[in-house]
Design a protein around this nucleic acid. Structure first.
Length: 272
DNA sequence: CACGCCTCCTGTGCGC
DNA sequence: TGCGCACAGGAGGCGT
């Protein structure tokens, strides 16, 4: 079985990019600006960035959030294939930010799913997922009892709940499959009791923290600012492993669709 | 409100 | 060899 894999940036990948960008961008001023006007709705008020100073480079879930002077914020989402580099721009460059140190930060995004917005600080009305984003999974705000209660209230498949960004921020297709595999929960399960919720809470933290240590998962598209790949791919147990033996029980891993997303799980270990 | 389905995009890989 | 098409998927939007 052959599966096409992209390796979309999720929390560990965005955090790895953030760690590389922060020292380069903090304190820099944007002195020139270009962006591809297509598709128009993925670039919002970007012109406001001209002349602004980047105060910090932070992250919420899969969003990069850069406070600017003048009480503005630059909000970036890498979509499926977004990446940054300090030039040179190629045919897939969607935005170019000229800095006051003479360098140019290039936002490259072949599939154009990324988004760039400049907003008044904290005003996420135009970015609804960010406005309603759940707690950071690696912070104390990610409360196990609140998570368990929210899962109990949810009638959606547990994987859909994880991807929804409201119960917890930053989990995407890769780490949802990994955390569910570790806790032996079937991705389509609509009933997750407190014991399994507690285990899932811990597993989400583990898979994300381990991947951050390895600077993320690279299949093809994701790369860091310096062009390096993440090193987490060889450690995946579920995502992309369809047809291969389950690392726990040896049963062939199965691929299905849950929440309109490709989903790999062990049909023997993972029970609803 | 919660849930689920459709859409946006384009490179890739497969079948014929 | 070349063509056509299915597939990958985060988030936004909309219908139920």
């Amino acid at each position: 079985m052959r599966v096409t894999l992209a390796g979309v940036p999720e929390l560990p990948e965005v955090e790895s990019v953030r760690r590389q960008l922060a020292p380069e961008l903090t304190g820099r001023r944007v002195v020139s600006l270009w962006w591809d006007p297509h598709p128009e709705q993925r670039f919002s008020d970007v012109a406001l960035l001209e002349g602004r100073r980047i105060e910090r480079v932070t992250r919420r879930g899969k969003y990069l959030v850069c406070p600017l002077d003048e009480d503005l914020e630059l909000v970036l989402h890498l979509g499926m294939t977004g990446s940054f580099s300090f030039g040179p721009a190629d045919a897939y460059a969607r935005a170019r930010f000229g800095l006051d140190d003479g360098r140019e930060l290039v936002f490259r995004d072949p599939r154009r799913f990324g988004r760039v917005s400049v907003v008044e600080a904290g005003d996420y009305a135009g970015i609804p997922t960010l406005a309603a984003l759940g707690p950071e999974p690696l912070s104390d705000d990610f409360d196990v009892d609140a998570f368990a209660a929210a899962l109990r209230r949810s009638n959606a498949p547990v994987k859909a709940a994880l991807l929804g960004q409201r119960l917890v921020a930053g989990v995407g297709n890769i780490y949802a499959d990994e955390a569910l595999w570790r806790t032996r929960i079937h991705p389509a399960s609509r009933r997750v009791g407190p014991g399994r919720a507690r285990a899932l809470h811990a597993a989400i933290r583990e898979v994300l923290a381990e991947s951050i240590e390895r600077e993320g998962t690279t299949f093809r598209d994701y790369q860091m600012v310096n062009g390096d790949s993440g090193r987490n791919a060889p450690f995946l147990s579920a995502y992309g492993q369809a047809g291969l033996p389950c690392p726990r029980c040896g049963t062939a891993m199965r691929k299905t669709v849950v929440a309109q997303r490709g989903t790999t799980y062990c049909p023997r270990c993972q029970r609803t």
